[in-house]
Design a protein around this nucleic acid. Sequence first.
DNA 1: ATTATAATTTCGGCATTCCGAATTTTCAAG
DNA 2: CTTGAAAATTCGGAATGCCGAAATTATAAT
Lengths: 224, 224
Amino acid sequence: MKSSRQPSLLDQHCDYLKHIFRLQQAQSPVSTSALAESLKVAPSTVTDTLKKLSQKGLINYTPYHGITLTPKGEKLAVKAIRRHRIVERFLTDMLGFEWHEAHEEALRFETQLSDEVERRLFVALNRPKVCPHGYPIPSKVEDVRVEETTLYSLEPGERAEVISVKDDEPELLQFMASLGIKPGVKIKVVAKDPFKGPLQAVVGRNRRTVGWHLANSIHVRKLD
Amino acid sequence: MKSSRQPSLLDQHCDYLKHIFRLQQAQSPVSTSALAESLKVAPSTVTDTLKKLSQKGLINYTPYHGITLTPKGEKLAVKAIRRHRIVERFLTDMLGFEWHEAHEEALRFETQLSDEVERRLFVALNRPKVCPHGYPIPSKVEDVRVEETTLYSLEPGERAEVISVKDDEPELLQFMASLGIKPGVKIKVVAKDPFKGPLQAVVGRNRRTVGWHLANSIHVRKLD
DNA sequence: ATTATAATTTCGGCATTCCGAATTTTCAAG
DNA sequence: CTTGAAAATTCGGAATGCCGAAATTATAAT
């Protein structure tokens, strides 16, 4: 396939940058296998693409030693993240999709949009600050900060406000919605079992018991 | 490249069907060279793809003798046309694009949209009947009829309403807009030179002189 | 009917994106 | 140190989309 339209940056490359950026927050440098798993392609494929990205000056790539985004790559990654979150907002706010559908729908076509469409979408949406899952819609690298604290890190008795929830597991999102958990909601932890056991909390008016995985997918800010 | 997402139909194939459908209205069967020019690819490329489309039962293809859409191919073509026009409406109505930009912007990402997004877009737009250029948004094959009469076919003294304008030349569209020509506008022909010469007409309050090509890009319905 | 020319197809080739198997490198355990 | 397992890379190969040049077929003019 000829690339045509986009002179400088292929869709695929944006995808790689987005994933590298995300993985980099957990661990830097990012390993080939981590990227491969995240992108759901074979490691050998990742190695191939890494060379191209490196040649374009988007990543620092030392064979066998992982990768880091260059400033240029970081900027493009942020641009891709911004676009993704704007499109998610479009899908929920203007088309009425549920938040658990928005993420995957957005992935389908976001890379094809022109900058102009993105700009106009942003304006038409009234310049939103966050995506449907509560993550900021960034203008620059510093904007992409996520709340470090997760619900599971709280101790019994503590109260917190939900800031954002992980968006990459649709079913989990749907389940969270059914529990009334979404950005802005306030939660009080009642009890927490040891060994990554279930956590009991009051969400709005209801008492809920949630597992470790779910509670760790919720970013919160402590209250009081 | 692996196709992934779309199980049954590749983007490229939709594109072919759309072009074949359009060309078929002017002349059937459609020739390889006409398709190649329309798609801006080499004739040999078209031949390659034609075989695949034929195998999928979307076209009737007899080597050296042109192509026709099968009922199945026709349905898909109409689906693609419908989607294109809905997206154009989205771009003009919800994002404020000019009509001469809408066509090309739509081409960038329309093929990536899911059926569900298309459906919701249509509803959010209030179920429009026509695209920004005045062509119908079809549900089935019969809906895709265009007004046969063009402005140039009128004789001096005749009046007509603009129904639709050809959408594939952005500059021409922009120029038409500057002349006040758009669907719904009423035009009275004042004079017409022989040999495809210029045509004089009254558009709204203004007297305009337009060339053959432009006048033939305007579909009208006679008044009185 | 024959023949020239125009349209179409065939063929080989290039680029891209992906993969699995084989190889190389790293790194930590002995 | 050595060495063995895990991680990463290289290599060969498959599929796709595209092209230009060469061969084939159709068709319109003689």
